[in-house]
Amino acid sequence: MIELLSLSPPGWGGNLLRGLLHSLEIAFGAFGFGLLIGLGGACGKLYGGPVLRDLLAVYTTVVRAVPELVLILILYYVGTDLLNKASEAMGYGRVEISGVAAGIWVLGIVQGAYATEVLRGAIKAVPSGQMEAARAYGMPPFLMLRRVTIPAMMPFAIPGLANLWLIATKDTALLAVVGFNELTQETRQAASSTRAYFTFFLAAGALYLMVTLLSGSVFARIEAWARRGQPSLRKAAT
């Protein structure tokens, strides 16, 4: 059992770790892409015109009601089709899309819908006086976003974003269905070629669990950092 998991070639441990690395890469990229979409979406939902607001409502509702697996397939085909059409129009011919890039694109759009809701709630929780003060000083919108809105909303957004990050790491497993070489897919290959299903699936589960627990403590630190300067609720209560 230990030989099966060893890192050098007769064992499959190296493959599992490589899969984990791919999973983390995709999760990281998708989380970042989702955050960008979410920030834009939240600002659009709060400050945008009626048409933009309705379009964003459709986006978040549809993405949150349709299974990720179906969205992944649709976005994967739409993305590759669009990219090929664009490159053919520019005279380059068909392009190969790497699994990591496709995974980031697909999961990023899914994450963006959830991030929009998390960030919208967080921005709404910021006392409006802070933003009014910034506006009263004539701060341009982007500077206000960077200096006032984002730092002030961080403590409210971190718990939701931590959840989103965990969803991102677990959703990378879905890409196994489309055949990307991330952790779950590598595990299945290792398991089916050695017939040691239990060993490998348990090992992969332990790896995922490790990522979850580690991220939990990292996010607890980030939250403590984002809340610095705020009076602690626990101290105030006693």
Partner: peptide, 15 residues
């Protein structure tokens, strides 16, 4: 909550 559902399904079915 810490492991993907797909992995749990495969662990139960194949394992």
């Amino acid at each position: 909550r810490g492991t993907p559902l797909l992995l749990q399904i495969w662990l139960l079915y194949y394992g």
